[in-house]
Amino acid sequence: MRKLIESTFMTTNGVIDNPQDFSPPYWDDEHAAYSQGLMEGVEAQVLGRVTYEGFAEAWMQRSGDPFTDNFNAMPKYVATRTLTEFTWNARALEGDAAEAVRKLKQEDGGDLIKYGTGAFSKTLLEHKLVDEYHFWIFPVLASGAKLFDDVDIAITHLELLGTTTFKSGIVVHKLAPKS
């Protein structure tokens, strides 16, 4: 069974809005190495519509190194109720998004990765479909939507699998739902 990994950027006070505004000053070789390591064993991306649109715009114009070429070439499955046309090797998750992800996880193949956090992440959490979280906490304070605001779920306990601290001040908590 495939594993679903979620990778999320947030500020120290839990804001997830517009990571493109707060994260770039912290991108460095350590950041790149961790990102590349996270992709080992990953075969496809699962994205919400907003993340898909932002990523497609940013990544489709990049190429020339193995990580970027692999990132662009891998299949993408998008949770959307509005998009009907896709580029960037993507297609819509058919029917109920949670059920579609459950089916993807049951297929043979490499792991799945999900970037970004929003309504789709809440759906995946509510249906207990995420196997591993990588919460990237940036040394920034900001205002905006916070991680899992307005989520009405039962308490979900997480097990700390590891912590990685970068010289830039980023701390990544790797967590998994407790059984």
Rank of each mutant, 00 (worst) to 15 (best):
P25K: 04
P25I: 02
Y26S: 11
Y26P: 11
W27M: 15
D28L: 03
D28I: 04
D28P: 01
D28C: 07
D29G: 13
E30L: 04
E30K: 10
E30Y: 03
H31P: 01
A33W: 04
Y34N: 08
S35E: 15
S35I: 13
Q36R: 15
Q36D: 13
G37H: 02
L38A: 06
M39R: 05
E40L: 11
V42Q: 09
E43A: 12
A44S: 02
Q45A: 13
V46L: 06
G48P: 03
R49Y: 00
R49K: 05
V50Y: 06
V50N: 13
V50S: 11
T51M: 03
T51D: 00
E53L: 10
E53R: 03
F55M: 14
A56P: 04
E57I: 04
E57Y: 10
E57P: 00
A58K: 14
W59A: 05
M60Y: 00
M60G: 00
R62P: 04
S63H: 05
G64D: 01
F67V: 10
N70C: 10
F71M: 12
N72T: 00
N72D: 06
M74Y: 09
M74L: 13
K76C: 07
K76S: 10
Y77A: 09
Y77G: 07
Y77T: 07
A79P: 08
A79L: 10
T80R: 07
T80H: 02
T80E: 06
R81Q: 09
T82H: 02
T82E: 03
T84Q: 15
T84M: 10
T87P: 06
T87R: 15
N89S: 08
A90Y: 10
L93C: 01
L93M: 03
E94K: 08
E94M: 07
G95D: 03
A97E: 04
A97V: 05
A97D: 04
A98S: 01
A98F: 00
A100L: 11
A100S: 11
A100W: 02
V101A: 11
R102G: 01
R102A: 06
R102T: 02
R102K: 12
K103F: 03
K103N: 08
L104F: 00
Q106T: 05
Q106R: 14
E107F: 01
G109N: 09
G109P: 08
G109C: 03
G110S: 08
D111A: 09
L112R: 08
L112P: 02
I113K: 10
K114T: 08
K114H: 10
Y115R: 09
G116N: 02
G116R: 12
G118V: 05
G118L: 07
F120A: 10
S121C: 13
L125W: 11
L129K: 10
D131E: 05
H134R: 14
H134S: 10
F135T: 02
F135D: 05
P139N: 10
V140A: 06
L141Y: 12
A142N: 11
S143V: 12
A145V: 12
K146Q: 12
L147I: 09
L147C: 00
F148Q: 06
F148K: 05
D149G: 01
D152R: 14
D152M: 14
I153M: 14
A154C: 12
I155K: 15
T156Y: 13
H157T: 12
H157V: 11
H157S: 14
H157A: 15
L158S: 02
E159A: 15
E159W: 10
E159D: 15
G162D: 01
